[in-house]
Amino acid sequence: MSAKSEIMDRIRSALTDVPDVRAADDVEVVWRYGQPVQLPEGNVLEVFIERVEDYHATVVSCVADDLPDAIAAGLKATGATTAVLPAGLDRDWLSAASGVEFTTEDAGPLSADELNTLDAVVTASAVSVAETGTIVLDHSPDQGRRALTLVPDRHVCVVRSGQVVSGVPEAVARLRGAVEAGRPLTWISGPSATSDIELSRVEGVHGPRQLYVILVREGN
C-alpha cells in the first residue's frame, strides 16, 4: 500500500466518531471574513505611520508630484550609491536620484552574488496594513522577484495611500487574487529583527537592515 493510502486509512479509522456531513455543517466557524478593524486612535494613514515607525523603520509622506524627490532623499538617507530596480518600476520615479547608479535585470537575472554587491532596492508595494504596520509585496513587475527585496541591505519602498487598509482581514481579501494567480507574497513589518538572545530585540539580521517607507498621499 502506498504511504498516502495508508495515512488516509489511518485518518479515516481515527475519525469514525465524526458524522458523514459536510465539514461546514459539522463545525460552525463564527467569524465574518474581510471586515475592517476598529482602529484605536486617528485615521488609517496616521496609525499606519505610527505602527511602521514602532518597528524603527523610517516613514516619510509626500504628494505624487514629489515622489522622485522623496526617493532621491531616501536613497541618500540610507547611504546607498547603487541600487537594483524591478523591471516594471516607473522609471520617472528615479528622475531626481542623481549620484546613484541603477542596475536592472533587462539583460537577464542577476546572481545572488551580484545582488549582494548592491546597496539598495527601490520598489512599489501591493497592500499595507495600518493596525500592524505591515507592507505586503505581491511581487508584481513594479516590485520584482523576491530576491531583489531581500539581498540588498536597504529597501526604499513606495506605498500609495489607497493601498493602506485598516487591518489584516481586509488585506488578506485584497491579496487573494495575486495568490490565485500563483504569485508569492512577502509580508514586511519593519526591518529584519531577532529576539533570540535573551529576548532582547535586535534590528537587522539577514533581510534589509534599513527599511525606508515613502507614503504617497493621493487625492483627498
Partner: peptide, 14 residues
C-alpha cells in the same frame, strides 16, 4: 508583536 517582521507565502513554483 503586532506582526512578525517577515511572512512568506508561496504556491508551488513561481
Amino acid at each position: 508583536e503586532r506582526m512578525n517582521p517577515y511572512t512568506s507565502v508561496w504556491s508551488g513554483a513561481s
